[in-house]
Every structure is written in structure tokens, then in C-alpha cells.
């Protein structure tokens, strides 16, 4: 170590300067005041409200679009603030996030659950404290939440797969590229595939996980194609993986002409814009989507309605859209990047 005065003083100054800068940055980010929840219904416009949103992760763009739609909807109300946490797909982080949000003081919670159990204790606590909770997209095992803005993932997946099976005429070898193993929505959707397959005994399905990412979808499709050159169709558990899969198909010699003629027949789930562009091009045949923006808007509006003294139903299923070449123009936006999500 250098022992000159300058370096020695830096030993103390550097950590000091860094901590001051960090403290300043953090301080400037968290300016919201503390609130105590009042049992009495008040006039909505008369006070300030805070909504907490615990997002399971931002590891795929669907969840990013959900977060953005929640931000956008909250921004419509001048007297409502939003606190956002990101659990990074970790149940432990989500438990801590929810504890932090409750400690900070929120008037309502929106929970995008990591799994079926992580949020349960926070949901119970909210019920005791009289704080309304909106569970969005993924189901939780507790029934103490106020409302569930729900996607029926099991049915969503089953619908997509049945379209593929019908598309290839009901028999032959297919591949299913599944989502992230163990993630709540993937588990539910895999059950959907389990529901469908026994009904078609002449379908032989190869099932591998593409982790909902473009890179994994590409890699796994390459491998599955190599092992099974006789595939009649592929169903992707997400448009992002489908885009990777089509790259793999093209790289292994399939022309766009062949793909358009349904060799192999391609279907997937969700309204990822990159995937919709492929449906527009005739390469993908079908997608079923659960739009993230509707989830975000309905979650926030449900809380606002409760703040105003109203009631919301316990279950609020989200509409599913079936997208084919005929109606893709209602959903796709050719000017937007792949990572954009359809309404």
C-alpha cells in the first residue's frame, strides 16, 4: 500500500464519499410520506393515497409491460403514489418486499406473486389491517385477498396446444417448448398441456423447457429439431421463445415458404409483438394472449374503486384473445419493437 498522506486519507475519504453519494441518491428516490389507514370511508379526492406493487420479477417483458401499465394508470391520479418492488423471482425477496411495503405504509397492495405461497402471510396481515389486496395474473393459495385479476393459465395453454393439434390433423409428432421450470404460470400451463395430451393418443409430444427467453427458445429448438427431424408442429409457451425458435428453424434450413405452408405448424401463447409480427407474416398460425395492460389497468382501477368506497368482485377473469392471420392487425404494431405488448 502507498503510505503517502494523499492515499492514507483516501482510505477514509473514499468510503465516506461513496456512502454520502449513495445516501443522497436513495434519499432523493424515496420521498413519499407515511400514511395510516383509516377505517372510515373518506372522500377519495381529499387525501393522498399510496399503492404498493410487488412484482414477481422483470425477467420477461410481459412483467415489464404489466409494471408499466400499472405506472401509467396510477399516473392518471394526482393524489395517488406508487411504490414498486421487484422480487427477482425469489420467494424470500418477495416476502421481504411485502414486509417493507407494509412498513412504509400503503393504502392498497397489488401482488404479482412469485409462487402460490410467498405472499400469503402479507395478504393475511393486510386483511387484518383492512388494507385491500389485488392479486394479479398468478394465483395464490390464500383466499384472504380482496380481488384476483386472474388469467386462467391452464385454459390458455390448453387452447393454444389444441389449435396446434387441430392444425396438424390430430396425429403425429409435436414439440412443446415450455416456460421457466417451476415458475407459477409455467406450472399452471404445463397442467393445461397435461390436460390436453391424453385426449389425443395419436399425438407424440416432445416437451422441453425454453425458460421464456429468446436465447433458450432458440437453443432448445435447435436441439429438439436435431433429435426429432420428423416434427409436424411446435407449440411455444410464449412469443419470445417462438421468435428464437423461428430463428433456429431458419438457421437449420427451413425456408419462410415452408413455414408459411405449415411445415412445421407453429403456435404459441401471448401477445409479444415480435411473435405477432411472425403471425402477420403467416409463419405463426395462432396465438392466445392475456394482455398485460388490461391486467395493470384493472388492478389499479379496482383499488381506486375500493378507495372511493365501492366494491369489486372477488374474481375478475381477464379476457383471452385468439390471434390468427385474420385478426392479427388488431393486435400487432409493426412500428413498435419486438418487446412491445399488444392491447
Amino acid at each position: 500500500m502507498c503510505r503517502c498522506f494523499c492515499c492514507r486519507s483516501m482510505n477514509y475519504l473514499f468510503p465516506l464519499v461513496v456512502s454520502v453519494v449513495v445516501a443522497f441518491l436513495l434519499g432523493s428516490c424515496s420521498s413519499s410520506e407515511r400514511h395510516t389507514f383509516s377505517e372510515l370511508p373518506e372522500n377519495f379526492a381529499e387525501r393522498h393515497w399510496v399503492i404498493g406493487f410487488s412484482n414477481a420479477s422483470e425477467s420477461n417483458t410481459w412483467r415489464t409491460a404489466l409494471r408499466e401499465s400499472i405506472e401509467k394508470t396510477v399516473a392518471k391520479y394526482d393524489n395517488v403514489d406508487l411504490l414498486i418492488t421487484d422480487a427477482n423471482d425469489s420467494p424470500a425477496k418477495q416476502v421481504a418486499d411485502l414486509e417493507d411495503l407494509l412498513a412504509k405504509g400503503v393504502d392498497g397492495l397489488i401482488i404479482g406473486a412469485v409462487n402460490t405461497h410467498a405472499a400469503n402471510s402479507a395478504i393475511s396481515e393486510c386483511e387484518q389491517m383492512g388494507i385491500p389486496t389485488v392479486v394479479v395474473d398468478r394465483a395464490v393459495s390464500s383466499d384472504k385477498f380482496t380481488t384476483f385479476v386472474a388469467t386462467d393459465h391452464r385454459w390458455l395453454a390448453a387452447t393454444g396446444l389444441e389449435q396446434l393439434i387441430n392444425g396438424i390433423g390430430g396425429s403425429g409428432k409435436i414439440a412443446i417448448i415450455e416456460g421457466l421450470p417451476g415458475a407459477g404460470a409455467a406450472v399452471e400451463r404445463n397442467q393445461g398441456y397435461d390436460d390436453v395430451l391424453p385426449r389425443y393418443p395419436s399425438i407424440n409430444a416432445v416437451r422441453q423447457a425454453g425458460d421464456w427467453s429468446r436465447a433458450s427458445g432458440q437453443r432448445v429448438t435447435e436441439n429438439v429439431l436435431t433429435a426429432n427431424p420428423d416434427l409436424l408442429g411446435i407449440h411455444f409457451d410464449g412469443g419470445e421463445m417462438a421468435v428464437g425458435g423461428v430463428q433456429a428453424l431458419r438457421a437449420s434450413g427451413f425456408t419462410d415458404e415452408e413455414l408459411r405452408s405449415g411445415k412445421p405448424f407453429l403456435t404459441w401463447t401471448d401477445g409479444y409483438n415480435g411473435g405477432l409480427k411472425l403471425i402477420k407474416a403467416g409463419i405463426g398460425k395462432f396465438s392466445v394472449q392475456h394482455p398485460p395492460r388490461i391486467h395493470g389497468e384493472l388492478s389499479v382501477e379496482s383499488l381506486i374503486k375500493i378507495f372511493k368506497g365501492g366494491r369489486v368482485p372477488k374474481q375478475q377473469p381477464i379476457r383471452l384473445d385468439f390471434i390468427t392471420l385474420e385478426n392479427v392487425d388488431e393486435y400487432v404494431d409493426m412500428d413498435q419493437p419486438d418487446a412491445y405488448w399488444a392491447h
Partner: peptide, 15 residues
């Protein structure tokens, strides 16, 4: 290893 597990169609949970 990853490639073989795909080729052999091993369950994603077991990979």
C-alpha cells in the same frame, strides 16, 4: 450435457 438432456427429452425438472 445441456444438449444431450434436450436430445434425450429428459424432463426439464430433472435436468
Amino acid at each position: 450435457i445441456n444438449n444431450l438432456l434436450n436430445l434425450l427429452n429428459v424432463s426439464p425438472y430433472m435436468q
